[in-house]
Design a binder for these strands. Structure first.
Lengths: 257, 257
DNA sequence: GTCTATAAGATGATAGAC
DNA sequence: GTCTATCATCTTATAGAC
């Protein structure tokens, strides 16, 4: 009764052994790719430990043993799922960044355009790239916030790109302390990945006024929000919280009931 | 070999049965509370499915059966862990919000102070509240980004509070479309929870210049960043991304290599 | 490359002694 | 309230047939 969730979903995808083969043939995709697709979808929903190799191979309509054969094991499959689309995505993001720089010559690109080159290729694919991309970004959201996977997978697959973006941001914010930009980037990536999770929370909170799935709406807002935030950080603590809110956290402790 | 992670951590905490009892006695805490503490720590590290009831009870030095006895089951324990500190936290945040309002009379409180009332009680406890609070907020980070748990636990335990904060933000931003504020809040919560995850990613990215654990640094920056972002959203699309970046995402598609 | 069969152990839950 | 003992099931991984 308590374990229902995972099982019900997986069971119906199984069918009889003859059905499995026909499904695989109908899709006309190699087993390896079918495993990646199914793993992507299920890992995005329930995380690494929330899905079994059997769940994945049943959903893919292939045999359990093929995960070990093609990837080596469950953890390696997880890493492969994460890597696959990162490799498609990052060249595009980097290309868009360089294009923004060229368009801005001989000046410096606007902060909004830099942030947009970072977020747009992801938002666009999550919105209109199909179910696989949608799942992938939901997975990125979980990985980014995971103490176990975040430092491994995010760092490995995205940080070389991020370093380039931060270098260009520094050009656009001359005289700004680098630490402000790193923190500004961290706030950006937190906001962006929560958006990808599409948990539907904002839908309820806003009484239907906003929808989690409205990635076009995020595209309209996020770059502006982040650019303004970055500029405020670089302007220094002069514009800091007023009243009791000072820079030392402890100074605020007595303000608590 | 592949399953090592979870097992090694749990095994060493087990000990012999006599040791278990002595540990429990030495701590002088009721078993129910010990289970909550251990569950909090382990769920924060590996998520709901990444930890077994046995892992938790071994770490707590109590018997496996006590999870069912005290909570009903694993899922109910998870919910109880999440609820426990939310109930300590929210009255304080609400109190700080009302105090900010009182201090601002007869005017309207500054946006920075409102955001600060939202974030400060959490940042302060994560920084100096002890290991339990630190684990708890890392758990919140995972739950917030989980399509499975986010809509249930975040909505139930935090949204009544969030509605009050958003109402006060609207007072501070007269004439601003409510949707801008809901999105601005979503970006805030994404940035805040990623901070709580403390994955160490910003440490590597910045070459040690910034540290994930520097929550005082976040306190100095986040309210300013978010307030500036919200004001930019409310200023309307006039300040939107320049160049090719327009409001319609598809308009940007041809900008991709 | 794909499958069957199986190993070796972990999992959540509970009945019943104390 | 706490523990022992056990259930039925699921877990990852692999040896070996085809």
């Amino acid at each position: 009764m308590t374990v229902v969730r995972r099982k019900t979903a997986a069971r119906k995808a199984a069918g009889r052994k003859t059905a499995k083969a026909s499904v695989a043939r109908a899709a006309a995709k190699p087993a390896k790719e079918r495993i990646l697709d199914a793993g992507e979808q299920l890992f995005a929903r329930n995380g690494f430990y929330g899905v079994s190799v059997r769940d994945i191979t049943k959903a893919a309509g292939v045999d359990v043993a093929l995960v070990s054969y093609h990837f080596g094991g469950k953890r390696e499959l997880f890493a492969a799922v994460f890597r696959r689309r990162a490799e498609m995505l990052n060249p595009e993001r980097l290309g868009m960044l360089e294009q923004v720089r060229r368009n801005a010559l001989p000046g410096v690109p606007a902060l909004e355009d830099i942030v947009n080159a970072f977020t747009y290729p992801m938002l666009e694919r999550s919105a209109r790239g199909g179910a696989g991309w949608k799942s992938y970004f939901a997975l990125v959201a979980q990985v980014n916030n995971s103490p176990e996977w975040g430092p491994v997978l995010m760092t490995e697959h995205f940080d070389p790109l991020v370093e380039r973006f931060i270098a260009v941001m520094r050009e656009a914010l001359p005289g700004c302390d680098a630490r402000e930009i790193y923190w500004g980037y961290q706030f950006l990536t937190g906001a962006l990945t929560l958006t990808f999770a599409e948990t539907g929370r904002i839908d309820k909170l806003s009484g239907g006024l906003c929808r989690s799935s409205d990635l076009d709406g995020v595209h309209q807002r996020l770059a502006r929000y982040v650019a303004a935030g970055l500029r405020a950080l670089c302007a220094g603590p002069a514009a800091a919280p007023q009243g009791k809110a000072r820079s030392d956290m402890a100074a605020n402790a007595d303000a608590c009931p």
